[in-house]
Structure formats: C-alpha cells, structure tokens
Design a binder for these strands. Structure first.
Lengths: 351, 351
DNA sequence: CTGAAAGCGCTAACAA
DNA sequence: TTGTTAGCGCTTTCAG
C-alpha cells in the first residue's frame, strides 16, 4: 500500500525480513501468542521499534481482532456520557483497546440502528450501547455476533450484558425529597417514547412510573403531572413552559435528566420566577456541571465512571475470556441536595 | 467469516451468485462505478436488498475507501464540540460517510498522537483534528498520507486544511467589552502550554496575547494578569481561586473558554462574591449552555456548526475530488452580552 | 520453537 | 459491458 507521499507503510513482512524471521513469528510476538522463545521476542521487538511498525487494524480485522471497542452514544452533548466514557477508557486502555464513538441520535431507532451497523461493519471487537431505544430483539441480533454491553436498559437479556443504575430507587429519592420539603404539586419531565409502545425497558419509563407510584403512595395522585418531551435542554425548556402556563402551577419539578433540568431552570427564570423560591427543581445524573455554584442543581447521583469502567470490564471478559453468559450490573444512586430545592413558598411563608 | 451464532456474514460473492453475476459487477454497483447497465444495476440491487448485504468496511479498507472520517476531540466534555460535530455529520452523511470519534486527551501530545495513529491504523479516509497541541510537523506527517483538516490552529500548512475563528478579533471583543463597562483590573485565564515553547499556533496563545495587547493599548499594562491552567472547569476554578486571593482582586475575568468560565463562576460564588456585582466574567465559544438563565454567561460566539460543516466539505473535496492544495477557512466571531458582565462596583456606586 | 502457505472480503487491472 | 484474477496485511492451520 502506497501512501500519498509515496512512502510504503511498514508492514509485518518488512519487520520479518529486517529481523530475519518469518511473518508468522512477528505475528506471534505481536499477539503475545504461545510458543515464542525469548530470543525471538527480543529480536522481533527490536525490529518493530526500529522500523516504527504499527499493526494495520483493517488487515487484522479480516482475520483476527481489531482491538477496538465501539461506543454508541445518543449524542455527545450530555456531560454525563463523558463520565461514563472516562471510566470505559481507563478500563480498556490497559488491555490495548481503543474506544471509537459514534453518535446514535436521540429517539430515532433508525439512526441508532445505522450507528450500530457502522460499528459492526468496521469489525469492532465489542460494542457498548448507551441508553438505546431500539427493540431488544434488534440489540440481541447484534449481540449474537459481537460482544455487547448495554447501559441503561431494564429489560433482561441472555445475550448481552447490562449496566444500569436502580432508576426506581433514584426516582424515589428525588420525589421523596421534594415531598419531604413539603411539596405537593410536583411535576415530572419525561422523554417521549420513540415507538408506539411504552416499554418498561427504558429508564425514562421507570423514572416516570416510579414518580407516579410515589406520588400515589403519598396521596398525591391528583397532582400527578407528566410532560413527555425529551431528556435535552430543549425538551426541559418546552415541558416547563407548558407546566408553568397551567392554572395550577407546580411548586416543584422532577426532571428525568440533568439536561432537561437545565432547560427547566431557563424556562422558570424566563417566566420571571425564581429557583427555588417559586419552583424547586431536581435533576438526574449528577453530571459535574450540576455542582457549579450558578446552577447548584439538586440531582440524583449515579456513578458514571464506575458504570463505564464496568462496561469495559464486561466487554473484555467476553472478548478475551470468551464468557457468553449474560451479566447484569446495577449501581445504587444517591441524592445530592443543592440549592435548587427548598420548601415551597406557602410553607416558607408560614414560618 | 463465521459469526458467533454460526451464521456467515453475507459477502459480496453471496450477492454475486444470488444475482448470477460476478463479484466485480456487484462491487461496481456498490461504488456507482462507471460501466454498468441499468439491467445489471437493478438485478444486483435486488439481490443486495434481498440478502440484506452490507459492505464489510474492514475488507474495503484493504484496497479502497472505508467511507469513514476520523475525528480527534480533546475530550467530549466540552459542549462546543457537540456543535462542531453536528455540522460535520450533517455535511458528510449525505455522501455516505460515517464519523467516528476518538478522545485525544487535553494537553498531552503523546496521547493525542496515539489517537491520531489509532485512526490512521483503522484506515479512515480523512481525519479531522480539533484543537491539537501536537507540533505542526507531526500533524503534517499524518496529513501527507491521509486527508486532514485541523480546527483551531493558527499556523499555516501547505499540507492540511485549516478551519478556525479569528481569535484575535474574538479576544479583542471580550476585552474591549469589559473595558467599555469601566473595568481596569481585568484578568485572563489561559491554558498552560503543553510543550517547552509557546507557539502562536495555539488559539490560547492568540487569545492571551491579544488580551495583553488590548490592555496595553488602553494603558492598562500594569493590570495585566494571566493565569495559565487549562480550558476546563477545574482549570477555571483553580485560576480564579488564585486570582481572588490576590491583594488587588480583579473586577473582571476574561476566560479563554466557556468551560473555564464555568469554573470561574463556581469559584467566585464559593468565595462569597457575586457575579456580576463583584466580578464580571466573559467566556469564549458561546456553547449553548451559556445561554441558560442560571448561567447567562457573556461569551464570544464562533459558529461551531458552520466550522464543522466546512471541515466536512473540505475533507470530502480532498477525498472525492482529490484536491491537494491547502485551504484556510476563517469565521469572524461576535460578542453575545448576557448577565455575567456589568460595570464594576465602584462605578455602579458612583451613579 | 519456527516457517510456509492459504485465505479473510473486497477492489482494480486486465481480458474477453 | 462483463468476468477473471491477483493481491491488500494479517492470522492461522499445519508441517518441519
């Protein structure tokens, strides 16, 4: 293969002839395969270093491994995904693996499917899919041929591994927190379902249902108000604008994701109201920015770094050790109370 | 190649035999190559659809194109990069190209180099590198063998294309804005140089130098205060903490990037001071979140979507049309004033 | 422990 | 216009 500047890329046979051995030997050294003498290893390694040889991933992909993990993210705008990715990178880098990311698009199963296909076509050794909206059967189809770990889905699969946080606990923490502060008119911002059916597999469904359950348990069923837009700033802004326009304005909003909560903050402020004076806001994910003084958003914390790290480990287990049984890893979320939540005005005034 | 579940992947020869033609014919149809009859095209396309065939990118990589653009991002945490990426995706998707993203790490030329190598090894058709810290010679080495577009570098290259905003204009807007408000003690948060030498190629150098120049032009040279940490929240927080501890506290801070400005806001608030009451803050990038009511950060806007879109176009020109001359595309930034800037206390009080 | 050789799926000369 | 065929760089039997 000739590169643009006319220089040939260094190949395995260049290394072989330079080290006076066969290409097979070089290949074995490269992969730390069984059956190479120390002398051979040293000689080959010297040649590799001298020539600056790097294995051609595409050629490898034809027969063996690519040492690549494909990551499907709905989009890279959510800072929480960055935490997840850092955990993944940390785990797989040591084993010589590279993560490549593709954007799957939000709420569109079609583009999500295309993103997954793109990764499969590029022969990645493992796939890590974050919060997919595709049908489980479609995910399993991919998982049958490529080791797969799915993050944030509650349905159980025997084919792929799952990493998730206990969204029921998380949502409960958020709603109970608001109720404990004295709120009754608590609204929830959820994500619109991408398909015709509402699946309990999606984390937004769990969060919404738990919100409804906890409200009912406290005798607040009549105050249940769910607006389903999307877990984005725009979605949060839009949902909140609608909620604030209602005759009985909520005194608190539980947003299903921090991104949506940011949009909610903007909408509340724009309506001339204050946080938490007029409306309290709780988010979910505890992305780093939530801690910023000017936002200071109360949020449900799930450890993204641990989740990403675990995903990496599970993937390597499948790839390297050949595990085929499905594993499910769940973290328990906690609530981080900040300045976006306070007792409702009425109660404050009574003091 | 046998997949895990024992099913062979559909290959070009499966399509060929199913359509009763040669693999060459199928390959030509796939690439819209010259010299295929309409009948042939229809027959082959039917077989492709029927079998659900998808080209194997790795195999293609051995001979031709992979239809893949590799993107090197310092990290995915900066929301401004999301804007850039959206522009890129929009541009290349139509041509059938896929973007894959790898994280290059901030301020470490080593890991940035490894990220680029990973892309080259995977035989991407083009590389888009965002705000690299590597030496130009190293970038050009890659650019000589793979079409490359670099974003945010001010040095000129004859080998790769450049997309950038006019950081001199942008920094000027920011500093002039603060001076016009009446500020004199204006500090600047910059990024630490990754190497021994300070290069004017880096945008952070331009922003810092321009800050110094504009200050001097207004007779404020004695008030110049630059703290170089990094364009991250942590960096902004740390730099601001240091600035606030000085005997002569600045009344305004020009952060070289929004991310750093966020950190600055947190540090100011934590010190018991208010924005813009005690300290005004200006950012750079105008990432979407800056518009949020609770942040409402004054910032220098550069159109990320346009920049990404242009990068995509330049890459496709090189890949498809074979352009080899270098192009330089520059956008002119504007200032978006929000509520994080106001006249300094002393002046306000005089009113 | 080492090497020769086949072949992964695809593209591009070249022939027909 | 269509088909035959030789590799691309690597891994992997299978002999030596």
């Amino acid at each position: 293969m000739v590169t643009r500047d006319g220089r040939r890329r260094v190949t395995i046979s260049d290394v072989a002839s330079h080290a006076q051995v066969s290409t097979t030997a070089v290949s074995k050294v490269l992969r730390n395969a069984y059956g190479v003498s120390e002398a051979m290893r040293a000689k080959v390694q010297a040649a590799i270093d001298e020539l600056g040889y790097r294995p051609h991933a595409a050629a490898r992909a034809m027969r063996g491994r690519t040492f690549t993990i494909g990551v499907v993210l709905p989009h890279i705008r959510n800072p929480f995904f960055a935490d997840i990715l850092d955990g993944l990178d940390e785990q797989i880098a040591g084993a010589g693996y590279q993560a490549i990311i593709v954007q799957g698009g939000t709420m569109d199963p079609g583009s999500e499917g295309r993103a997954i296909d793109a990764l499969v076509d590029r022969q990645v050794d493992g796939i890590f899919i974050v919060a997919p909206v595709l049908a489980r059967s479609r995910l399993e189809e991919t998982a049958r041929s490529t080791p797969t770990v799915v993050l944030g889905r509650h349905d159980r699969s025997a084919v792929y591994d799952s990493v998730l946080d206990d969204d029921e606990v998380g949502a409960e923490l958020a709603v109970e927190h608001l109720i404990a502060l004295g709120h009754r008119r608590i609204a929830h911002i959820s994500q619109k379902d991408s398909g015709p059916s509402r699946s309990v597999a999606w984390l937004h469904t769990i969060r919404a249902r738990t919100y409804e359950r906890v409200m009912a348990e406290h005798g607040l069923a009549e105050h249940v108000a769910v607006v389903a837009t999307s877990y984005t700033e725009e979605g949060g802004y839009q949902a909140t604008s609608e909620l604030l326009a209602r005759s009985l304005r909520p005194s608190a909003i539980f947003a299903g994701a921090d991104q949506a909560a940011f949009g909610a903050l903007a909408a509340i402020h724009e309506a001339g109201l204050t946080v938490p004076g007029d409306v309290s806001v709780v988010g979910y994910d505890n992305a780093r920015v939530t801690a910023l003084a000017h936002i200071s958003l109360t949020s449900v914390d799930q450890d993204g770094a641990i989740m990403g790290k675990t995903a990496g480990r599970l993937l390597l287990e499948r790839i390297i050790e050949g595990r085929t049984s499905a594993v499910r890893f769940s973290v328990t979320p906690t609530l981080v109370a900040r300045r976006s939540t306070a007792p409702p005005r009425a109660i404050t005034d009574q003091k």
